[in-house]
Design a protein around this nucleic acid. Structure first.
Length: 827
DNA sequence: ATAGGGTTAG
């Protein structure tokens, strides 16, 4: 008979039936109390609510209460009118504080109640489970057990929900046990919550076991297990269950399908996606906003932009999310221009962008390298008050870095208070990609000193910086760190390492790492193929490319660029031509400007200047600077004034920003002793304000990198270096070296030699030889192409000193040893 | 329901 008390709803409407409640009504089995219940006597006395209480103006006011603010205004009235200890008000207060999200205030009322009805426990537990921490809910549940309040089924469902949300498997299992002990092991609601808990704890097998044992199931329990499979990445299983539920005469609803679609999207499985879409249409759900939005996102992620766009365009009630998904689709498919068009369209239509929209737009701007649009998006932030969203700030830093404005990125970074690991990673990479190696490395050490844990992204960024630095010592150090941090199975990290070792001249180490990798991306292959190419190991490069073609990773446009330029460096003209053909024929890849440039380089370098020129004439698109630049370079190597002039004319029409092409032409004239024309080119250059990039060579000694500019005397050891070069010059001349002074005009012979001796690479080599022990290999990096005389001299230097000298120039490596160079004088 | 930072080439 006491069970009826539980049917007192804490909500107002029921109160009018207070009198009927006290008459006996049959109880539901799971709500029954044992007769020894501690509140047995006091309860029946308290169920009657006198009319002066429920008709009190304050009670009416409380009935009209709709917010926490109003509740706080009514509370003093309750106390003032001496109603605080009335059952009606206790009931309402406990429940309303929970309803408005403050179980702690609810608890204050609860604790003040002398004879606590079970409903108070139930209400407060629900309040804790829904609004507070799992800890609060759990410890209140323990207290409830201690106070000998018998749990009811929805105590378990709320608790299970909180346990699942916190992925607390250990306590989830414990409560599952108690649930069974209390006889709810076959209860539909209880078991659905158990299924959900196991699924949320990623124990999908256990979840299914529970689902399978349920004696009855409803739509919610089917949706729970289907969502469980979907969210654990089993889209196929989820779809199977959708079919199975129909066999068991349970019709899926839109929620069923809207949980399956994101899983399909994550899998990027267009086939499964289409069959879900088919079901959506047959069930007539295709006009629902959330379904079409999920479909747009699914098709976008499956790179089926046409279909995504079709559904998107047909939606007459688009939401921000559907716009965002559409923009993301274009960004992911590397169509940033389209992405920006959609973004602009969205603004025009008056939709207010969210942080996700802004991030997507910034991503597109970064891919385009479009600073102006990037700034436009940046300006929008202030209007939208999104300027304090860390994620947005991270995207901004990345955007500015990719648009070559690393200084702006750095300023944003410095002013940002709430940096996350992502922020640090974006900044380090930004520095690295803009050639600011020192900044990148000091940013990394700052990050470490602030005890921010590094991850694979950090590692990739630092390795990218060190690849640029190309110092073997640092390369080995970071490799050690990769191993110590257990990141040596990460494809991105390992690919960066392969590239870094190749750039340090340690091509065999690079290959060892490459061979050890279990998983490789197309970039991994590209890095290795290009590594061989820049080392002049054309055969190895081609072999690796052929091996790649046998595997499952498909070559991309960059692969072809790498392999063709590898052929170019090694004079493999036939192979290069064949790959160029195959690119379109076998892989459907359209050659871009760079590919044409590489082909002209291939033909031209091999001395087939006329073929190269013909090749340019037959190009289907207008040749760009890089193509004629390759032609001009080839003309310089093969001393062809006529074609060189033709190529240069084209280049100058295109207004290059760099002075390098004028220098090339002037070198061609110099070699041909056409001094007047040479002088003319130099004058034009000056008039246009074009600068010759100064030659600069780097050499690392212990923990420092020393840089030498052509003709510079600013290094502390400068005097010694020049003196050393003098004596070294005598030694190599004795061994057969003849200075190549042909390209210098107007000065005495000894001055010509002095000029040659002040080339940056010679200074760097001399410095390296002076400061290292005999037998040590010298590593040099030069920003331009190594000059002919220096190349020849270095061969002799390696002979007379017995040193190995490795020079990395703008395009490739030269390994000098015993008087010869790995490039075979073909470069 | 949508999301931030990653490797190759130039």
């Amino acid at each position: 008979m006491s069970s009826k008390l539980l049917t007192i709803s804490p909500h107002f409407p029921v109160l009018n039936t207070a009198t009927t409640l006290s008459s006996s009504t049959p109880s539901k089995p799971e709500l029954s109390f044992p007769p020894h219940h501690r509140n047995f006597h006091s309860l029946s006395e308290r169920t009657h609510i006198p009319s002066h209480v429920y008709k009190h103006p304050t009670a009416i006011l409380l009935e009209l209460c709709t917010s926490m603010k109003e509740l706080h205004q009514i509370l003093p009235l309750i106390i003032k009118n001496g109603l605080y200890s009335e059952l009606l008000f206790q009931t309402k207060l406990v429940s309303l504080f929970c309803k408005y999200g403050s179980p702690s205030e609810s608890a204050r009322v609860f604790h003040s109640i002398e004879d606590k009805l079970d409903v108070f426990y139930h209400t407060l537990l629900k309040g804790y489970a829904k609004n507070s921490s799992l800890e609060d809910a759990f410890s209140f549940f323990v207290r409830m057990r201690y106070d000998d309040v018998r749990p009811v089924v929805y105590n378990f469902t709320y608790l299970m929900k909180a346990l699942g949300d916190n992925s607390d498997l250990k306590r989830g299992k414990e409560i599952h046990g108690q649930l069974i002990k209390h006889g709810f092991g076959s209860n539909l609601f209880a078991m659905t919550s158990v299924v959900n808990m196991y699924a949320k704890c990623r124990e999908i097998g256990e979840a299914y076991k529970m689902f399978d044992r349920m004696p009855e199931r409803d739509l919610v329990s089917w949706n729970t297990i289907i969502a469980g499979y979907a969210q654990n990445g089993y889209a196929m299983m989820a779809l199977d269950l959708v079919l199975r539920m129909q066999n068991e005469l349970q019709k899926p609803d839109s929620i069923t399908l809207v949980t399956v679609l994101p899983a399909v999207a994550d899998m990027m499985s267009l086939k499964i996606g289409k069959s879900v879409h088919g079901y959506v249409v047959r069930a007539g759900f295709d006009s629902l906003v959330n379904i079409s939005t999920a479909l747009v996102d699914m098709y976008s992620k499956c790179r089926s932009l046409g279909t995504a766009r079709l559904i998107f365009d047909r939606m007459d009630n688009k939401t921000v999310v559907s716009w965002n998904s559409m923009i993301d689709g274009y960004v992911q498919s590397e169509q940033p221009k389209e992405a920006m068009a959609i973004f602009r369209n969205m603004l025009d239509k008056g939709f207010e962008p969210t942080n996700v929209t802004i991030m997507e737009a910034l991503h597109a701007c970064a891919d385009l390298g479009d600073l102006e649009q990037g700034k436009f998006v940046h300006k929008l932030l202030d209007k939208l008050k999104l300027g304090y969203d860390v994620s947005v700030m991270n995207s901004l830093i990345s955007m500015y870095s990719k648009c070559k404005k690393v200084d702006i990125a750095a300023k944003l970074f410095e002013n940002l208070r709430d940096k996350t690991r992502v922020t640090w990673n974006a900044m380090i990479l930004g520095y690295a990609q803009n050639g600011c190696i020192n900044e990148a490395l000091s940013c990394f050490s700052e990050m470490q000193s602030q005890n921010i844990k590094l991850d694979s992204f950090t590692m990739v960024s630092v390795i990218t910086a060190l690849a640029e630095l190309s110092v073997t010592r640092q390369a080995k150090w970071i490799h050690g760190l990769v191993i110590r941090t257990c990141l040596d199975k990460n494809v991105f990290v390992m690919t960066a390492l392969v590239d870094m070792y190749a750039k340090c001249g340690a091509i065999h180490t690079a290959r060892q790492l490459f061979d050890m990798m279990d998983e490789r991306h197309v970039t991994t292959w590209n890095a290795m193929i290009d590594g061989y190419g820049t080392h002049g190991l054309g055969k190895a490069s081609v072999d690796l490319f052929n091996e790649m073609q046998k595997g499952t990773i498909k070559p991309n446009d960059i692969t072809f660029l790498c392999v063709i330029s590898a052929c170019s460096h090694s004079g493999l003209v036939k192979e290069g031509l064949q790959y160029f053909e195959s690119m379109k024929k076998d892989y459907g890849l359209d050659p871009a400007m760079d590919h044409y440039g590489a082909m002209v380089d291939l033909l031209g370098r091999a001395g087939k200047l006329n073929d190269a020129w013909d090749f340019i004439q037959k190009m289907p698109t207008e040749p760009g600077i890089s193509v004629f630049g390759a032609m001009l370079g080839a003309c310089r190597i093969h001393k062809n004034v006529e074609l060189g002039e033709k190529a240069a004319k084209k280049i100058f029409e295109l207004n290059p920003e760099e002075g390098g092409y004028h220098v090339l032409l002037s070198n061609i004239y110099a070699t041909a002793s056409m001094w007047d024309k040479m002088a003319k080119v130099r004058t034009v250059m000056e008039k246009k304000g074009l600068q010759k990039t100064p030659g600069c060579s780097l050499v690392d000694l212990r923990n420092e990198v020393h840089s030498f500019y052509s003709g510079s005397t600013s290094h502390p050891q400068s005097k010694q270096i020049y003196a050393f070069l003098q004596t070294l010059g005598d030694k190599i001349k004795a061994a057969g070296y003849v200075p190549d002074t042909n390209s210098i005009h107007d000065v005495e012979d000894d001055v010509k030699e002095q000029l040659l001796n002040s080339h940056s690479e010679k200074l760097a080599i001399a410095f390296g030889l002076l400061n290292t022990r005999p037998g040590t290999t010298i590593h040099i990096r030069k920003n331009l192409r190594v000059c002919g005389d220096c190349h020849n001299a270095t061969k002799y230097i390696s002979l007379v000193t017995g040193r190995e000298i490795i020079v990395r120039d703008m395009h490739r490596f030269h390994h000098f040893k015993n008087g010869t160079c790995s490039c075979g004088d073909y470069w």
